[in-house]
């Protein structure tokens, strides 16, 4: 009787051990999740990480004033800029935003630039396809989209694009003036707007001053998720 009981116990233990032996490697493998890659510490590392993706990214060079359009490390186009400035918003009285005083290696575009300029075409109703043997109706008033030949509205020469991390990219034709009198005038207008109950934009800004044609060209490029690498002089 006791032998039977032990046999049952032996079977239970051996089958448990067998199951454990089978499952253990899988469980261990599951526990060993691939560690996330450490954040890039140099522009080259950031670009290499980005260039593995087939998409287009931008490289901003503030000192010569240029925006390079790149993919896979290949420069596809260089857009000249008149000036590049990084501006931080400061409240004159009160608490500061808890931003780092340093620039990130890369910004990420948070929204499409041309979303507001897309034109939606949609026939109000559809009619059955006539087929080859049927004669096409004449005189029916179907809204056929004017997709052939009618260009979309021109993108604006001055605009702002939201970037991730509370920054905005402003493309403008006039380089930003940060002298004392301009700042004072801005602060007065800002405070007056707040007194009137408005909420002026206080995002930190990456300002690109560009010719109108170049501003439109830059506008055409932006897509949500696109990376803008910043080269502050470490590379030539």
């Amino acid at each position: 009787m006791s032998t039977k009981r032990y046999r049952w116990a032996r079977r239970f233990i051996s089958s448990s051990l067998l199951a454990l032996a089978c499952l253990a490697p899988a469980a261990l493998a599951a526990r060993k999740k691939p560690e996330p890659a450490p954040p890039p510490t140099s522009l080259e590392e950031a670009e290499l990480a980005q260039a593995k993706d087939p998409g287009v990214y931008l490289l901003l060079r503030p000192s010569p004033g240029a925006l390079e359009v790149r993919s896979k490390g290949l420069t596809l186009e260089t857009i000249p800029l008149q000036q590049v400035a990084f501006l931080r918003y400061h409240r004159l009285v009160g608490s500061e935003k808890g931003h780092s005083a340093e620039l990130p290696l890369a910004f990420v575009v948070a929204e499409d630039a041309d979303g507001s300029h897309r034109k939606v075409i949609a026939p109000e109703e559809l009619r059955p396809y006539p087929g080859d043997d049927q004669q096409e109706e004449v005189g029916t008033t179907i809204k056929v989209p004017p997709n052939q030949g009618e260009p979309l509205p021109e993108p604006p020469p001055n605009y702002r694009i939201a970037l991730q991390g509370g920054w905005k990219l402003e493309v403008t034709q006039t380089p930003p003036r940060t002298n004392w009198s301009s700042r004072l005038r801005f602060a007065l207008n800002d405070g007056w707007a707040r007194l009137k109950g408005e909420q002026p934009d206080e995002s930190d800004l990456v300002v690109l001053a560009a010719e109108p044609e170049n501003a439109k060209r830059i506008h055409h490029l932006f897509r949500a998720g696109m990376q803008i690498l910043i080269d502050t002089g470490s590379r030539s």
Binding site: T41, L92, S100, A101, L103, R183, F186, G191, D204
Partner: peptide, 23 residues
């Protein structure tokens, strides 16, 4: 009035182009 406005307002200052320093 200007002081009151200024107490509510803010301005933009240029940021030094210094990036996150690697060790």
């Amino acid at each position: 009035a200007a002081g009151f406005c200024l107490s509510r307002g803010g301005w933009y200052l240029p940021l030094e182009t210094r990036q996150v320093a690697a060790p």
